[in-house]
Design a protein around this nucleic acid. Structure first.
Length: 410
RNA sequence: GGAGGGGUGCCCGAGUGGUUAAAGGGGGCAGACUGUAAAUCUGUUGCCAAACGGCUACGAAGGUUCAAAUCCUUCUCCCUCCA
């Protein structure tokens, strides 16, 4: 069997590495490895997905990944690569975030079956005694060296508080702790974590005299250099409650041409041969590749069934065949409300949440960007009546070029 | 702790008493073109209102004035220099 490191490298997961030879060697036997996730938000988004995919590869290869929740480090806030100090989060909020994140991580990793672990660094960070900690751990850190690190450059210009300055030390201590308790030898993380990760590797060498290793993932950006994973509605969430599988599918369906292959390698488990075959595809053929990417990625996050539904709905709606299936986002309105002619077109869009305000809805309609069941809405005051619904009592609302919603009459 | 500079719309950034919902750029959105692409062009981009118009807004709170993003006071946050 191929070394999982080769697989990860080939698929574009590796940015930086401590020692390639050594990593390959330790991965020949089952290894405990970890990536940290700070519970600073109430859900995970595509930014977290790349590390999760890597952990899945490692799990499949028989290693033991640890998803480390940063219940303790989230109390501090990582300044790496950030320009502003992050707002302090309350412990109650961190608690809630952790629970939400655990649920999601469970979908990707086999926690119940024991193939992977979820741990929480609050367990060992919160009980720390300040003086003991300084004496045991703090003495191994050179402030001079920390200050020289690239990660702090920006913050040294703009201001860096002492609390954040400690983040790296705590993350290093995490690695040491996991090394001691689980024999963890490998840490992975986003490339912005490189400094923090090396600090941990260094600490293990100093205190335990052992070689630990690490590699980082590339930071995915769109071709104009922005962080990938934002839509007009905000982050691309991995939970169906925050972003429907259909919309998740659309996110992947709409990636840029020159990203498709790269994303297929990272965010699907399709064999490399299949993906490299797609490299020859161009122009409109790329749409097929995007569809495959969207389907596979949606299947991993929401399951095959949801992916199939999303694909079906997408095909129906973009071919003009109407609102197929029930995957489209949408709302339900009562017949009474419709027969009472409660809404004009503009207020309808705003009330159903298809436009962020009534002004926005009016603008969309006046610019010719809205249609009901394939018919362009020309008048913001047009009353919404049963005529706007088809025989099944459905109205497919198109907003702009590619946003579709379904309203059901009940 | 002392001295100085600053906080403007999603972001950058002009504006120093009325004609400023606030120039310009970026981004977003819509339309045309297309492949649910990129590039380009056009329009648009606080909220309410069909419209006339109204309301809210320039770090926060007060005040001066017929009139304040613009002047004054206090508070707050950030930056630079000194300690």
């Amino acid at each position: 069997m191929r070394n999982v490191y080769e697989v990860l490298k080939e698929r574009g997961f590796i940015e930086n590495i401590t020692d390639e030879e050594a990593v390959i060697t330790i991965l020949k036997k089952p290894v405990v490895c970890y990536t940290g996730f700070d519970p600073t938000g109430d859900s995970l988004h595509v930014g977290h997905l790349l590390p999760l995919m890597a952990l899945m590869h490692l799990e499949k290869a028989g290693h033991k990944p640890i998803a480390l929740l940063g219940g303790g480090t989230a109390m501090i806030g990582d300044p790496s690569g950030k320009t502003e100090m992050r707002q302090m989060i309350s412990s109650e909020e961190i608690e809630r975030n952790k629970e939400a994140m655990k649920k999601i991580i469970n979908r990707y990793l086999d926690i119940e079956g024991g193939k992977s672990l979820i741990l929480d660094n609050a367990e060992w960070l919160l009980p720390l005694n300040y003086i003991d900690f300084l004496r045991e751990i703090g003495c191994h850190f050179s402030v001079n060296r920390m200050l020289a690190a690239e990660a702090y450059k920006q913050r040294l210009e703009r201001g860096l508080s002492f609390i954040e300055f400690n983040y790296q030390i705590l993350q290093a201590f995490d690695f040491l702790t996991l090394y001691r308790s689980h024999g963890c030898l490998l840490q992975m993380g986003g490339n912005d974590q490189w400094g923090n990760i090396l600090a941990g590797e260094d600490l293990i060498r100093r205190i335990e005299g052992k070689e630990a290793h690490a590699f980082t993932y590339p930071l995915l950006t769109t071709s104009d250099g922005k962080k990938m994973g934002k839509t007009e509605k905000g982050a691309v969430w991995l939970s169906a409650e925050k972003l429907s599988p259909y919309e998740y599918f659309q996110f992947w369906r709409n990636v840029e041409d020159d990203q498709v292959i790269k994303l297929l390698k990272i965010f699907t488990f399709l064999p490399m041969e299949e993906i490299t075959a797609m490299e020859a595809w161009k122009d409109h053929e790329l749409n097929k590749a995007k569809e495959i990417l969207a389907f596979e990625a949606t299947a991993i996050t929401h399951g095959k069934e949801e992916a199939r539904k999303a694909l079906e709905a997408t095909k129906a709606v973009f071919s003009g065949a109407g609102a197929g299936g029930d995957a489209l986002p949408g709302t339900v309105v009562s017949r009474q409300e419709i027969s009472a002619e409660k809404w004009d077109a503009a207020s309808f869009l705003a009330d159903q949440g298809f436009a962020s305000s009534k002004s926005e809805a009016k603008r969309l309609i006046m610019q010719g960007g809205v249609s009901f069941n394939g018919e362009k809405v020309g008048d913001i005051l047009m009353p919404v009546t049963e005529k706007n619904f088809d025989e099944k009592g459905e109205c497919l609302i198109k907003v702009g070029k590619k946003k579709f919603y379904k309203v059901i009459l009940q």
